[in-house]
Each structure stands twice: as structure tokens, then as C-alpha cells.
Simulated scan of single mutants.
Amino acid sequence: MDQEIQVNQQRPSQRQQRGGGGEEDHGATARTTTAPSPPQDEQQQAHQAAVAVHGQGQGGGATAERHHRSKLTLLPLVFLIYFEVAGGPYGAEKAVSAAGPLFALLGFLVFPFAWGVPVSLLTAELAAALPGNGGFVVWADRAFGPLAGSLLGTWKYLSCVINIAAFPPLVADYLGRVAPAVAAPGRARTGTVVGMTVLLSFLNYAGLSIVWWGAVALGFLSLAPFMLMTAMAVPRVRPRRWAVQVEGRRKDWRLFFNTLFWNLNYWDSASTMAGEVERPERTFPRALAVAVVLIAVSYLLPLMAAIGATNAPPEAWENGYFADAAGRF
């Protein structure tokens, strides 16, 4: 009996202990399952992230549209390639004086396609595969290592500096047909060359959009006189004059091919704009195809017009002769 009483007295205490332990377990479970409230800065970050996502949903289209407009599209790219390669039929007269009208016309008919098409296809393929502004430097680096890329970039830079330096004096030769003071060495010629260099340099520093659409405007401006001259020459053209040969002296083939190559080179320079082009895998091939045809036509039509409408000997074809021919119509 006494043992039963002792057992009954122990059971409530055990139940209390078990109950207390249950409360402790429940409290521990509650503490482990209840997540602590995030700090204030984490709440602010979460709120900012939500606002950013919401803003992208609301204004992402406008941002994408602005980004879309900032990319280089087909028409500006065509004229940028046009100026990289040709810039107009200026300087093509030497081909006529070197080998005669027939070979000059054949050269500017064949060379843009025999040389320009393969190089432009190569440029389009690699620019689409590696769409960055490094262009040919990146190609050489990927293929042959950083030394080759560095050397190619240095040589190309020096080549472009020497090549570009020839254009302001060439334009001065043409202006000299209208203003004789510009043709002769002196302050007028120096001022013309320096002023043109400063103006074009300023356009490059003004921003990409100005360069793009400036190239389009300059393209139409440079082609307009030759288009007008060609239209005026059509009634006077005599096709038999296109077949005139150089007589009494040997043809200067070195000058002839140098003139063709100088006027129709630098197709790969367009690759340094690949990072700015919208959808380069599609835009680059189209722009290069249009540029090949545009460049070939911009040389052939003025040459055919000036040769067919004038009866000048090949020796008379010096820099600026197009202006002289236009003055005879």
C-alpha cells in the first residue's frame, strides 16, 4: 500500500517534468521554425530590387528602343565602308594616264569584284563571328597570338596615317581647278589642307552618331558633282573613245595597278566597327554587298562619261581632270 502511494506521488512529478520538457521542446521548435526578421538594409535592398524589376517591366521597352537606335544600321554602315575604301572617284585619273582608257575601264570594272568581293566576304564572316571593335587585330590575335595582333595593329595604323594624309592635298588639287590659288604652294593651299584636317578630326571627336550620319551626308555631297557631270555628258558620249590605247610609249603597269589598289583597298577596315553594328551577322554582309556595287558604279560612270565625252589624250589625265572635263560640257 505504501509502495502504491509512493508510485502515485511520483507520477505527477514525472508528468510535470515531461510536461515541462514538452514545453521546452515546443519552445525550441518554435524558435527554430520562426525565421528572424531581416535587417532594415536587407529589406531596403529587396525593395529596390523589386522596384528595379518592376521598372524593367514598365520601361524596358523604351530602354531597349534607345539601345536599338544607338546601333549602327545598314545605310550609315554602307557609307562608312564607302569612305574606308574609296570616298569617290578622286584619284582615278592616274589609271587612264598609265594604261589608257580601255584598261582603266576594265580595271575599275573587274578589280572591285575580283579583289573587293573576296575580301568583303572574309570581313563579313569574321566580323559576324567576332563582333568586336578590335576587328582584324582580334583576328590575328586569335589565330597567331598577341604578338601578331599587336604587329598588325601597328602596321595598319601607320598605313592608315600615311594613306589618309594623301586625301586633303588631293581635294586641294580639285579645288585648285576652281580657285587657282589653292593649287599652287602657299598659304591658301596650306590653309585648305589644315582646315579640312581639323574639320574631319572634329567630326570624329563629336560622337559616333555624328560620324555615322555625317558619312551619309558627305557621301551624297561627294557623289553629287559626279552624278551631275555624268548626266550632262550623256549626249556627248562617243563609245569608240572608250577603246583608245596608249600610243608612242609603254604602259606604266606599276602605276596602273597601284592606282587601282589604292582606290579599292581597305575593305577589312570596316571590321573595327563590328561592335557598333546592329545584328552584324545580317547587316555586315548586306552593307558590304551594297558597298561593292556602289563603289564600282561610282568609279565606272564618271570615267565612262569623261572619257566618252572628251577627246583628250591619256597624258592629260592628271589629278583633277574630272573638273576640267566637266567644264567642257
Rank of each mutant, 00 (worst) to 15 (best):
M1L: 01
Q3H: 11
V7R: 15
N8Y: 09
R11F: 01
R15P: 02
G19W: 01
G20R: 09
E24M: 07
E24Q: 12
H26M: 12
A28H: 08
T29D: 11
A35M: 07
A35N: 14
S37K: 15
P38Y: 00
Q43T: 13
Q44L: 11
H47A: 15
H47N: 11
H47P: 02
Q48W: 06
Q48G: 12
A49W: 02
A49K: 04
V51M: 13
V53T: 10
H54L: 09
G55H: 13
Q58T: 13
G60Q: 04
A62Q: 11
A62S: 13
L75N: 12
P76F: 00
P76V: 11
V78L: 04
F79T: 09
L80S: 10
I81V: 14
Y82M: 09
A86S: 15
G87C: 03
P89T: 11
G91P: 09
A92P: 13
A95G: 14
F103G: 13
G107L: 06
F108T: 00
F113A: 13
W115H: 09
V117D: 06
S120K: 09
L122S: 15
A124M: 05
E125N: 05
L126H: 08
L130P: 15
P131F: 00
P131R: 08
G132K: 10
N133Y: 00
N133D: 11
F136V: 14
F136G: 03
W139K: 04
W139A: 02
D141W: 12
F144Y: 10
G145D: 14
A148F: 03
A148W: 08
S159R: 07
I164D: 13
P168H: 04
L170W: 13
Y174F: 11
Y174N: 07
L175D: 07
G176D: 10
P180Y: 03
V182P: 12
A184E: 15
R187S: 15
V194L: 10
M196S: 04
M196Y: 01
T197E: 12
L199V: 14
S201F: 07
Y205L: 06
Y205G: 11
A206F: 00
G207W: 03
L208D: 02
S209W: 05
S209T: 14
I210V: 15
L223R: 02
L223T: 10
L228S: 08
M229G: 13
T230F: 15
V234H: 00
R238G: 01
R240L: 03
A243L: 15
V244I: 13
R249T: 04
W253L: 08
L255N: 12
F256G: 14
F257I: 10
N263S: 09
N265H: 06
Y266A: 15
S269K: 05
A270V: 15
A274L: 08
A274C: 04
G275H: 06
E276Q: 11
E278V: 11
R279E: 02
P280Y: 01
A287R: 03
V292A: 08
V293T: 12
L294K: 13
I295Q: 06
L300W: 01
L301R: 05
L301C: 10
M304P: 03
A305K: 07
A306H: 07
T310M: 04
P313D: 06
P314I: 08
E318R: 08
N319G: 05
A323S: 03
A323Q: 06
A325V: 10
A326N: 05
F329R: 04
